[in-house]
Design a binder for these strands. Structure first.
Lengths: 388, 388
DNA sequence: CTGAAAGCGCTAACAA
DNA sequence: TTGTTAGCGCTTTCAG
């Protein structure tokens, strides 16, 4: 819903605008009036007027007001059953009156919990832009976490220095659990984290065969859906641009493609594979390769949407019409797919849900460190945008 | 660079794959072998073999090993100058040997610092997808933070409950500073945070005229660039789809448009305004309105890329050719702009840099809470993709 | 069911 | 320059 306010209604709001409009390469840093408002004096003396409490109320204060001991307040705060109704009421009231909130540091110091979970992102700096995956996982994680009172801290682990810092951080008990979203096949991180004994959940399966909790999209199934769709719409000469084979995503999507084509009685198609790197340029290059090698293909399954975009480009350059001559189906369904030209048919994975499930798994493992390793595979969905 | 590995080289990696392929709507949760490896027993007894240190080494341990007092170790850790070279060396060695890392909780308890800064996101759930802005700011923030040893915690503040939780969190000294990235005009959050006295930096200017540190793109200048570009390529009947006028982005981009058209001697153009909501649907609707009211416009400046996409759609539906009949320039330059059909000319803002500058400002304010409020305006850039 | 007391690991006076 | 001594605010036995 957008406002249908007529034009011209914005003038009054312009009053506060600063005219700063730096056009050069470096930012203009202007300074305006003093930041701190008309609050009470900060100095030592205590002026006549109201004096803000400089320190947050403590358990002690609550106890005193409620007429009980600190221990009892602590019990109430932590939901212990063994507190009399009267005590409970008094404490609750005192807490409300004082606006008491527990001090996490103090609590953490004694409990050795941190009420914090860490999301470690292990991402190539150059893949950095155009990555809705990350944002959406994050969204899901945050959403799932908001039902708890865990805090989410973000750690980048790109490069040795940052990686070690992240490792030290989790290794020294600064987090109750770790969520690892690692885009490449490098698996020193998972190993190191597991070694530190902190609960860990990954996005994507480990190719090394270790058992770690993880959630993943049904990449095999999704790829099969793509093949079935292509076959179902009459395509007969399929090929695929696979993702990197040191990642489970890459491996699984290729596997789904191969299984589906083979089962459909077309083992030759299972062999028409070029391995890309999930980038648009890679998709374009590998599609060109496929085209050179198998000039008569009439469908391409690209293992990512970016690669699908590249495929589109390669096909255009090769003079093939999409979808008339060659159909393209991509994996991952970002906004890009919707605006591609021609619009891309894609396999959608539930990225946000992935984040949610990761949290669910992590909480379960924190609760019971000895439970069996679990995997959650989220279904995928075919999104048809073009009549491919 | 993508690998040019021939097809077929993936087979061996498939061995570890689980066959789980849930196609239904609910996730399949399989359990595999026990998670925890062959680590030492967790129980009370201490088996014959190696026993891992269950607890991280403390200052005390370092002190003992180094033959000094805890205070001295603390001084070394915190970089105090008043430590003898010998003591320093001994402590450093002990720290290395033990792998000592300070306990943040303990430190925080006494220093009342948290070494944590909070990024509060105040976002509509429905704007959630297709929002590279957020991810890129985040990237910049994280990057800037990685030079310090501050931790980044993420807080969502959507809805009263979450908002209050976030407010309580920062209000109770759980963060040394707050970064606020608020997409709509609602300004109860900034006010509340400022009231709590925690250092705050915002993305975007406050419309209420309060002085708070902020960094923003040069929205006015960017809009001017758009107008100048349009005028420079021969367009004579400009119109704009503005953003919401309760946000500084909306206001400023409209202002730039008006200033530029007015200065170019075309005050009438300054009046051809429709107010959208930054969504594609809104852009489409408002462009349609503009078209109805001013049938002879030959250029549209859309205050966001999504709205530009909507404009494209509206123009197509109205039978106008882009860019031949009507040129479109959008603001914000996401991947979408690159794949729009026809390709969109846009004004790019340095979103990642924005995050970096926010951190810079925040650190400065933490260091000196009484400094003057500062603003950083980042330059924008015209990205021409079509010959509009 | 409740309170007293003992720290969790660290920093910051204050003495020496 | 160094060590000693108090706590920071909270949880958690252990008595009562």
């Amino acid at each position: 819903m957008d406002s249908l306010k007529g034009e011209g209604s914005a003038e009054e709001t312009l009053a506060a605008g600063s005219a700063t409009g730096a056009a050069g390469a470096s930012p203009a840093t202007g300074t305006t009036a003093a930041a701190r408002g008309a609050g009470p004096a900060d100095g030592a003396g205590d002026p006549a007027g109201v004096s803000l409490p400089r320190r947050a109320p403590t358990l002690e204060a609550v106890a005193e007001l409620a007429g009980v001991s600190r221990a009892t307040v602590s019990r109430v705060v932590n939901g212990s059953l063994k507190v009399s109704p009267e005590a409970h009421a008094a404490v609750t009231a005192a807490i409300a009156q004082l606006g008491y909130v527990p001090n996490r540091a103090a609590r953490s110091l004694v409990t050795r919990r941190t009420d914090t979970i860490v999301l470690i992102v292990h991402e190539r700096p150059d893949t950095v832009f155009s990555d809705p995956f990350f944002a959406n996982v994050l969204r899901g994680v945050d959403e799932a976490l908001s039902a708890t009172d865990l805090q989410l801290v973000l750690l980048q682990a790109q490069g040795e220095v940052k990686r070690d810092r992240a490792l030290r951080y989790v290794g020294n008990g600064h987090a109750d659990g770790v969520l690892l979203i690692s885009l490449h096949g490098d698996d020193v991180l998972p190993k190191a984290i597991r070694a530190s004994g902190v609960p860990l959940v990954m996005a994507g399966r480990l190719l090394t065969g270790q058992f770690v909790d993880y959630v993943d999209a049904d990449n095999v199934g999704g790829a099969r859906q793509a093949v079935e769709h292509l076959l179902g719409t009459g395509r007969r000469r399929l090929a695929t641009v696979a993702g990197p084979l040191d990642m489970s995503v890459g491996v699984d999507r290729l596997r789904g493609y191969r299984e589906a084509t083979t089962e459909a009685g077309d083992p030759a198609a299972a062999g028409r594979v070029a391995v890309g790197d999930f980038t648009e340029a890679g998709g374009q290059r590998q599609t060109a390769r496929l085209l050179a090698k198998y000039p008569d293909i009439d469908a391409v399954f690209a293992a990512s949407d970016l690669m699908a975009l590249g495929a589109l480009r390669a096909l255009r350059e090769a003079g093939r019409r999409v979808p008339d001559d060659v159909a393209v189906v991509g994996f991952d369904d970002t906004a890009l797919a919707a605006y591609a030209d021609p619009p891309l048919t894609t396999i959608r994975q539930q990225v946000e849900r992935m984040g949610q499930e990761m949290v669910r798994l992590l909480l379960a493992r924190i609760a019971d460190p000895d439970r069996e390793a679990a995997e959650v595979i989220l279904p995928t969905e075919l999104v048809v945008r073009a009549s491919a």
